[in-house]
Write a protein that binds this DNA or RNA. Structure first.
Lengths: 253, 253
DNA sequence: ATTGTTGGATTGTTGGACAAAGAGAGTCTA
DNA sequence: TAGACTCTCTTTGTCCAACAATCCAACAAT
């Protein structure tokens, strides 16, 4: 029995268009930031209908290689992790990853990030971190959710680590991890504990960063992320339940 | 002057279709594995043309929520990191990330992965690792490239760590990191060093895993990944050059 | 039991058409 | 002459209608 034959895939025109455009951008023949030819032009050049071109473009849009700048034409752009991360988060969500899985990775990534950031961080980022902490104080006083600010705080630190690979790796995690804390903050048994402690930890991390103290920053971050797990324990929530949160698509930049 | 008004985004039908289908799948109204309605049906239900539906579908395809199973209809599927990772890698590549950035992250992720895997690994994975090592011996003897096997070795370990978040985080890194070693293996100054050492390290890691020895596994992995950096140094290649490799799209599963 | 055949369903591709929104040029006014 | 207001022209978004290619399943033929 010959069972080794691969299913041969019949090429579809719109896929070909997709790949051709991709190649065109990757190779730099369509330079970053410049507009793509019009649909009609592409249709002519590729020898297919405009409809077919459009289908190829829809696919291209999703890979972040191309963006609809305000106005009309599609422009080639550098794909940014913010474009890709929501899909990653969603995939994780749908696979039913547990809080434990998220936490394990978040712990390590965030600790590395702050460790790397400490010696590199510059005044501008420190300022933004200060603003973030201030905003969180305000939000806390007014009883608003601090999740968004929490996400931002950690994202700022990760950026300061000057490692784009780290940035891309942690983004899908971050998008899922911090929102998954929401229910913690609203849980009665931890209500007095969590949000205030988050703020405190952020303050201490910021202080350490201001002094370029990698060890202190590292320790506080570790404690900080550990706290979340402790919160789950205290609240009696099972760590091995799938997290459930909504992932909203990125709003673009 | 009123300047605070947000640019309001005019909804496009194909985006609406995209989102509607996404929602339909996410909510479970279209269960995993089941086929989507036909294009004509969708067109009727949404009240748009079939072509508009198709554009929405092209976008859906890219987010991995849907797959063209062999034959005809699109089926809803759990998005898998293998579908998403290549885009992540490509984004990194295009941003011109350096070997140093990749290495820094790979070092930590791989070390942690093997540490987690050690106590959890089961016989089946060990067998596959053994097969992998054997294949690498063969490839080495025949002078073929060991990159693909290298990637697989580390992927197997990461899988054994039983953490899907880790799996997703490391995939884009892995897809870029190991291929970026190709030029190292071909470099004369390290020719006697690298490929053989890779094999040796893999053997030792496997041995440690067989004995569930997390510490030894960890140490060998650390040494192993460190070696790559040392290789770059020895070869006199600048760590801060952007890596250049090809990222081929996933072949699907 | 394996191999054609046939018809119906669905996808892939094409054609042509038109409305809506931007971009740019030209015009008018202050 | 700068700014505001048209008025085109271009390009995109959407629609309608059709046909070719492919697949599926049932059935017929060997």
């Amino acid at each position: 029995m010959t069972n080794h034959l691969k299913r041969l895939t019949i090429p579809k025109a719109y896929e070909a268009v997709h790949r051709a455009l991709e190649e065109e951008i990757l190779s730099g023949r369509i330079p970053m930031g410049s507009p793509l030819p019009t649909e009609t032009e592409l249709a002519e050049q590729f020898g297919v209908t405009r409809h077919t071109v459009r289908e190829g473009m829809r696919a291209l849009e999703q890979s972040g290689l191309v963006r609809r700048e305000a106005g009309r034409r599609l422009h080639a752009v550098l794909p940014h992790h913010e474009d890709l991360a929501p899909r990653g988060s969603r995939a994780l969500l749908m696979q039913g990853v547990t809080f434990r899985e998220l936490w394990e990775v978040a712990l390590r990534l965030e600790v590395w990030a702050v460790e790397m950031a400490a010696p590199l961080i510059d005044a501008a980022v420190i300022e933004r971190l200060e603003a973030n902490v201030a905003a969180m104080e305000k939000a806390l006083a007014e009883g608003r959710s601090i999740i968004a600010l929490d996400v931002e705080f950690h994202a700022l630190i990760a950026e300061a680590a000057c490692n784009r690979v780290l940035l891309m790796s942690r983004e899908p995690v971050s998008l899922l991890f911090y929102p998954s804390l929401e229910k913690l903050f609203r849980h009665p048994r931890t209500a007095d504990l969590s949000p205030a402690r988050v703020l405190e930890a952020h303050r201490e991390i910021l202080r350490a960063l201001r002094q370029r103290d990698a060890v202190a920053a590292r320790d506080w971050m570790e404690r900080h992320i550990m706290d979340f797990r402790r919160g789950y324990d205290l609240a009696g929530i099972d760590l091995d339940q799938p997290v459930d949160t909504k992932v909203e698509p990125s709003t673009g930049r």
